[in-house]
Design a protein around this nucleic acid. Sequence first.
RNA 1: GGGCGGUUAGCUCAGCUGGUUAGAGCGCCUCCCUUACAAGGAGGAGGCCGCAGGUUCGAGUCCUGCACCGCCCACCA
Length: 926
Amino acid sequence: MPHELPKAYDPSAIEARWAEYWVKEGLFEVPSSKIPTLGKTGQGWGTPVFCMQLPPPNVTGRLHMGHMLNHTQMDIMARWHRMRGFVTEWLPGTDHAGIATQMMVERQLASEGKQRRQMGREAFVERVWEWKRHYGGAIVEQMKRIGDTVDWSREYFTMDENLSRAVREVFVRLYEEGLIYRGKYIVNWCPGCLTAISDLEVVHEETPGKLYEIKYPVIGSNEFITVATTRPETMLGDTAVAVNPRDARYAHLHGKRVMLPLMEREIPIILDELAQPEFGTGAVKVTPAHDPNDFQAGLRHNLPQIDIMDETAHMNQNAGAYAGLDRFAARERVVADLRERGLLAAVKDYVVPVGKCDRSKDIVEPRLSTQWFMAMTKEGRNGEPSLAARGREVVARGEVRFTPENYKTIYLHWMENIHDWCISRQLWWGHRIPAWYCAAHQHITVARETPAKCATCGSTDLTQESDVLDTWFSSGLLPFTSLGWPEKTRDQEIFYPSTLLITAYEILFFWVARMIMFGCHFMRDHKQDAAIKQASGFADRGDDSVPFREVYIHALVRDAERQKMSKTKGNVIDPIEIIGKYGTDATRFTLAAMASPGTDIAFNPARTEGYRAFANKIWNAARFIFMNMDRGPRNTPTLGNSGQGWGTPETLEDRWILSRFHRTARELNEALESYRFDEAAHRVYTFFWGDFCDWYIELSKLRLNAREPEVALAALAILTHVFDGALRMLSPFMPFITEELWHALYGGKPELKSIALAAFPEHDDALISESLETEMSVLQDLIVSVRQMRHDLKIEPKVSVPIRVFADDAVRRLIEGNREAVERLANVSGITFVDSELSKVASARHTARFDVVVEYEKKVDTAAERARLEKDLAKMETELANARRQLANEQFLAKAPEKVVEGLRRRAGELAVLIEKAQTALQALA
RNA sequence: GGGCGGUUAGCUCAGCUGGUUAGAGCGCCUCCCUUACAAGGAGGAGGCCGCAGGUUCGAGUCCUGCACCGCCCACCA
């Protein structure tokens, strides 16, 4: 009566309801009031803690397949730990995403015919806030919809006041420690975004291009020196030509000067290792303002830096006649002019590595500019290791562990070759750098709050730095700032370091590496409570300053053809669409099942369709159980959280399914412990469908239909219990359907608010039995053999037929004890045991444990039967020959483990018998 | 220029420290609307584990080389 479920599972009918329920009930919030104060007694708090930081999605973001995978894995981990009794804190938030958001709002403005610069900074920033309030919650809503069990009570935004204060605190401290500095260097400049960007934001592409050889006239001779370049337009800013001091070809030109063509400027020939004799002509033009290597060379030789471009990469006054031209137009003109003057020695095809802006795809311009940097390799004032050194150490030592392990090498390699980080951005949206300049001297005052006067000269005429910080600066701080830093909060005591970070490879350096560096620096005095650390399973990890102990890098999701998804290719699979079609559970299960380590995921909706069928299977198994509950007496056993209260297993199938269940629980937990989502999903899938539905439910029907109510009730009790456990196992993977069915099962009990708060199944070794499972497999073999014969003999499915069986006493007792099961599942009308082998009977089946034949007058298809036997025979003979060869090998007998030898002997014995039977049967057929 | 990953059934992928008969899903073939489920049930076909060597009693698994895909990193013109 209460269990009215529709025949087919319809995810859309239940998912939104539970998504809302979970949020409304605040089921996954960990209120501070529930966290005990630590440390007073030295006793600590022995509860295991599981904490995870969400890679904060951009406010401009919408859920894509990568998120879906990432969130599925995180949610599985969160739910699994929570159900295992961990205090589980999964911290959600969103990222202000400087450039992305600013660009989005600028585009919106453009459609209204407005421009950011006309509006002014203040009005623009206000407009972005407005946009954020309006549209910034989209992805958060999507997270709620897919069932992420994050703690919404702790949700943050990276530009919240408290987080912004923390950002300033960090900036000031690092500046005071000399680890943040300001200076004029060559940076990566994006002429589209009009800002500097970091090395990481530059994507390198090998592009077919040209290598130009240009002749520079040597002053005081008729000679030319020829330089090679891929960027001829930059010659307008040349301030030297370099040759290698060891290069004999140019020895006679040492100390001479050349006339820079087009600009008619005299520049020196310098000697520098920059010029490599093997490359090109061995002479290289030096443009200190437009090339990082030339910049360094310029410093070495005290060369002037002539900046010939403006911020939009157009030539400026310094480019003389070329002023006003865009850099590519300038290139054409320069080349044409050189050719006209006969100064272009050669133009060769050449593959040029072009750096493009990650965001706008504009070609990045190396540009001389004053920016703020963070020193990566500089030691502390008292000789403390540099940020990079610390960040490297903790990973090298295994204080932070990567899965899959090969990312450790990649990370270490990157850390060892790291460069200073350009942290300033010429944007308006972001954390404004807390530095002020006095009008009179441009002295810098760095302060937490707006200072009243210049720290150096006391001037009160101060202007704040207009640049903002790289977005990754603030997100790199999240592991501690999201827990209330710089205050020493209880949250921090309990939840720092977080347990696990699950993220994409793409942001390993952008985010993960920075979090490690920041964390180790600012939390260096942090000690995690020993009892919590122990209970959480990290007693062996020394360093508590790390932001997290484990990092799991998930795969890339591609389309079904293994192509990288991209908007331009138009092959983007929208998870929301997939969810609409197959349900969230099926989508989640697909991603979990396909997440094998080391490979990208080729997302194929056909697979999701299969898992929708799985959900339907679960649904209908529930309907079957409910149907029986409704039929029988209403005193179903009390289950729920206790894990107690079901009847005593009496029958073989009961003990078998419990063995399978506990084995599955064991394997499932082991798989999840090593982040094998694919294996975990596979285990629970085959258990539920293969063991529980295909065999156990079918077997249970015998007893459920029994006359005696006690028998039916006992069967129902165990059936329900195993189903209850299976639901819990499935719950982290398929939260919606399991929640629905859980409530259908226990509805109305207020203490059972959610399956997500129930206990996850833990295995009991005492209930796992190898011999029991072997016994069951004999019965299964028998049933399958009979079904095969029925099929081969084309016996009508509805017709029951008697069978004859030959077996030893033990197997015979087993079959007799489960006679009804065999009769029902193989549609057999009676079992007769015989005392001699059945090999002479046409169509009989032989296994190592029994021979079986169906009694049926219909004619045997002799040809087909012979073909089958011959094929089997051939296979067995090869196998036996191999086995005998090995068993005759003394080396094998001496060196292989006893178990292997024994196993092979047994197998060889079986084969010999089976071959003999097959041969007899073949003769009988003839 | 450096580094990394992949190659197993028609397709997409498992196969954990080398060990008896290489697995799954989808697809395919045959039968069945059997009182939970046709998004289902039952049965079946299909694999010199990329190529060539080597180590070993034993190799899909370890080593070397090759081929073909793919990815990442990189301030040398």
